[in-house]
Simulated scan of single mutants.
Amino acid sequence: MSRSSFGGRHELGQNFLTHKPTLARLCDLVRHTHGPILEIGAGDGALTRRLATLERPLVAIDIDEHRVRSLRRKLPDVQVEHADAMTYPLTAPVVVGNIPFHLTTPLLRRILGSDDWQRTILLTQWEVARKRAGLGGSTMMTAQSAPWFRFILQGRVPAWAFSPQPSVDGGILEIIRRGAPLIPTDQKKAYEQFVKAVFTGRGRNLPQIVRHAGPNNPGRAKSALKVAHVPHGALPRDLTVDQWCALWRVLTA
């Protein structure tokens, strides 16, 4: 296959999934959703072919124009588009894809900032999937997004399941938009700034950090942490979504 106008295989960051059980797992997760499907990073169509068997409206996009032409010939019933996932409208209820590992964070930010989809299933770098799902502690991005989304780790994928083989394992991350947000949407920006202030704030312990994250005196910060049932010695990454939300409600009451 000739080079894409965006560069060769490595320039595109493509690691194609060849592990049939993982392909079946991804398709099965999509099977339990409803509505039209958007696949990002279709590549050679290993997952696209399985998604097509669900007999639902399916759009598959890829940045490599040669693979797009090939997929159009092989799957005439699928709408295959030559497009970049960083700019293509994410308007389908279900988004799924094996995404380039180096684009995981910016693509996740774009997905979380889009309003139309209901469920997203991504094959990402293992460490990213693990952290987004809160295993071993939450990240700032997850804490900022958790009142509006649920993050579920659906499995680990060994590096040898890809071709070419990456240096790290992959992880299946499912993101579900909450039907009822835990915090009013009109407070989203302020809440995100608060979480950032806590994660990046100064202080030797959480009461001090929370105190400096806003106009809070020491007593108010300690009282809010107590009401939110935050244990002594906890760090920002240790807080659950319920604790974050309770802390926010108390401090903004």
Rank of each mutant, 00 (worst) to 15 (best):
T53K: 14
V96F: 01
D84I: 12
P164D: 09
D186M: 01
N216V: 05
E55G: 10
Q144D: 09
Q144P: 02
L182E: 12
R50M: 13
D28G: 06
L153S: 07
T120Y: 06
R67Q: 13
L135H: 00
R132C: 00
E55R: 15
N205M: 10
A52L: 05
L182C: 02
I152H: 14
P215D: 15
S163T: 13
L29N: 03
R67K: 14
W126T: 07
Q208M: 13
Q243L: 03
T252M: 14
G170M: 02
M140Y: 01
R72L: 10
Q79F: 13
T120F: 05
T124M: 00
L239H: 01
S5K: 13
F149S: 04
P100S: 11
P215N: 14
A221D: 08
H82I: 09
L108G: 05
A213S: 15
P57Y: 07
I209D: 01
L135F: 01
E127Y: 04
R25K: 15
H32W: 05
L135C: 02
I176H: 13
R130V: 00
L107V: 10
R177M: 06
M86F: 06
E11P: 06
R156L: 03
G155M: 05
S167A: 14
A213L: 12
G113T: 02
F194H: 08
P231S: 07
